[in-house]
Design a binder for these strands. Structure first.
Lengths: 186, 186
DNA sequence: TACTCTAGAGAACGATCGTTCTCACCGCAA
DNA sequence: TTGCGGTGAGAACGATCGTTCTCTAGAGTA
């Protein structure tokens, strides 16, 4: 038998795959149990309700996102390049075969009529990303008003890529960000 | 008794309000029947399945969107102003008290794992909007590469406004579009 | 060996879903 | 008046949901 930490990771990973691919409400807890190989009883000991599991999935997504953004930024030298690297990160993500849009946006659209905790978790993630962009904009010496514009480009690229089903949106958004940065920096 | 045309409009209107406010899967057909004041039997004669009703809701949303965009554009003189008017239209929409994001994006995130017809309807709407923007960009004498950038700004503004729960995103996106247009037109 | 405790497998529960069916009732031709 | 086709109201159906309960088997301890 595996320990609770490993079981937790398996359950969250399985739920992430299923929820992201099929939508949250379309996936039953039985399907999570089968995919995770962890008994229902144990799932409910680790996560008292499905809502708790959804939040855990979003929190794991956030960690993966933050780590990916950080890794991409590390390969860039200047704040300006770190900002543009966000769009390279998106480009690589859009090309993954199972890309299906931003899970935060998808879950929010599906569940914001219900669980308050899901709403809050999604909002916190988007605020954190906005703050990250704002910090880089400041470090690049550009006016603060540029930050929400770049965040909106990143946001729009994600939904556009998901619906149009092509990765082109990343390049388009990057080009727009470059132009806005060039405008602001001279 | 009302005729089929009026009953259809009532059902689609009721379903639109409920689906948009609560999410599609969270709303049962019984709730639609109560809100619309039309019997289940008649609903199922007008719409053979819930999927058909969802598509009808999206088609009505598209008509309302197109009419709103057209009305806003009419008040603008030049292609450039018509492009920027899109963001004024968004601004007014974001300020409506029951604004909850773009229904197409929300439905897509919730249902794209399922109904193929919903996927197609959403994709068509976004393509049509992209084509509208592309036409205006062309008429404004700007390079075609600007069109997807402006579309992405509009898309991103919608999700950002929904999640952050403020209408500011419209003004930010408009400012970015203005800068990109100014860049492209000289 | 005998007892206790815990875990897993999955049946069971009540609620709710999309959809269909029943049935009393209406306007209208003969 | 009598019969009939179609209506609305809502009960009913089978499936599935999130969640809990039962039962069995095995590990650890005296």
């Amino acid at each position: 038998m595996i320990d609770d930490t490993a079981a937790r990771a398996q359950v969250v990973g399985a739920a992430d795959r299923l929820f992201y691919a099929c939508g949250v409400q379309a996936v039953g807890m039985d399907a999570v149990r089968t995919e995770a190989g962890v008994s229902l009883k144990r799932i409910y000991r680790l996560f008292p309700s499905k809502d708790d599991l959804i939040v855990a999935v979003l929190e794991r997504r956030r960690e993966v996102w933050d780590a990916g953004i950080a890794a991409t930024a590390e390969r860039a030298a200047t704040p300006r390049e770190k900002l543009l690297a966000v769009f390279d990160f998106l480009d690589a993500w859009f090309r993954e075969p199972d890309f299906r849009g931003c899970a935060f946006i998808n879950f929010y659209g599906e569940l914001s009529g219900g669980s308050e905790e899901v709403r809050r978790t999604v909002r916190e993630q988007k605020e954190a990303f906005g703050a990250y962009v704002a910090r880089l904009v400041d470090e690049a010496g550009a006016p603060a008003s540029l930050a929400p514009q770049i965040s909106i480009l990143a946001e729009g690229a994600q939904t556009t890529a998901a619906i149009a089903n092509t990765p082109d949106a990343a390049a388009h958004a990057r080009a727009a960000a470059e132009a806005l940065l060039a405008d602001a920096l001279d």
